[in-house]
């Protein structure tokens, strides 16, 4: 599956992986905001692209695979880039394309160097509502379980019916029925999960074996990272 690779990347060891999730979140937000507020020209993105590349190398992540994964934004950006081009602003269209790609790469670097539970815990201590964080955690934990169940159901359906020899109408209702079954299975699974959690003494929050520590190194990383983002912004704005 798509995301299993990123999950494995996030559990590697490097200088970037060791930093606290809050420090990385702050630096990523600073980079994104600095890029978003800089002038609309493709040249603007060059220093930011270099910064993200440095981050990827420092995190010892595979550059080419990262570049490929971030390309998921390109179809949407190309569409709007083409719209801008038709409207007579080819430069703005190109800037849109390049900047949205660099932004996606920045976010990918963040999630590929931070395990999901640590990232969510960081968001919670930065002020995200606890119920939302709990939900996002459960969602992430069961996302692949339920997606795989959906794929198995689809495979089973294809095996049973061969190729589609049915009317559109019946195929539509069959899909609706399949979703209802998937819903029923998810619902029953959620009840089981709650019983298991209650049996283990769940009282409204997840505990961690290693509570996050914001070290002096994290403070330096956050400070230097944000300062570099601001400098890059000033550089491209006045050049």
């Amino acid at each position: 599956m798509h995301h299993v690779v990123v999950e494995q990347w996030s559990r590697r060891h490097s200088f970037v992986h060791q930093r606290d999730a809050r420090a990385k979140l702050l630096v990523a937000l600073a980079l994104l905001a600095a890029l978003a507020t800089s002038p609309a020209s493709p040249v603007t993105a060059v220093p930011f692209a270099l910064l993200v590349a440095v981050g990827i190398v420092a995190a010892r992540l595979p550059l080419v695979s990262m570049l490929k994964k971030a390309a998921v934004v390109l179809p949407f950006s190309m569409l709007f880039g083409a719209v801008e081009w038709v409207a007579g602003q080819p430069l703005a269209g190109a800037a849109l394309l390049v900047k949205s790609y660099i932004s996606a790469l920045t976010v990918l670097l963040l999630v590929a160097s931070t395990p999901q539970p640590a990232l969510l815990r960081g968001m919670e201590s930065l002020g995200a509502p606890r119920l939302l964080v709990l939900m996002a955690q459960t969602l992430y934990r069961y996302l692949f379980v339920i997606s795989e169940q959906a794929q198995h159901m689809r495979l089973a359906a294809v095996c049973r019916q061969g190729s589609a020899h049915r009317s559109q109408r019946r195929a539509f209702h069959a899909a609706a029925g399949a979703l209802a079954i998937l819903f029923a299975r998810s619902y029953v699974r959620a009840e089981g999960i709650h019983r298991a959690m209650a049996a283990r003494g769940f009282a409204g929050e997840f505990h961690s074996l290693r509570p996050p520590r914001f070290t002096r190194m994290d403070a330096v990383f956050a400070g230097v990272g944000s300062a570099v983002a601001v400098l890059a912004h000033l550089l491209v704005s006045h050049a």
């Binding site: 939900m135 459960t138 969602l139 339920i146 559109q168 959620a190 709650h194 959690m197």
Partner: peptide
């Protein structure tokens, strides 16, 4: 009630998976 908190997350995952099921239209 507290029993429905895991349900919210699991149904979120359900919506993710449901988006992979194709409905024929036209």
């Amino acid at each position: 009630d507290e029993a429905r908190i895991p349900l919210l997350g699991v149904l979120g995952a359900f919506v993710f998976a449901a988006q992979m099921v194709n409905f024929p239209v036209g």
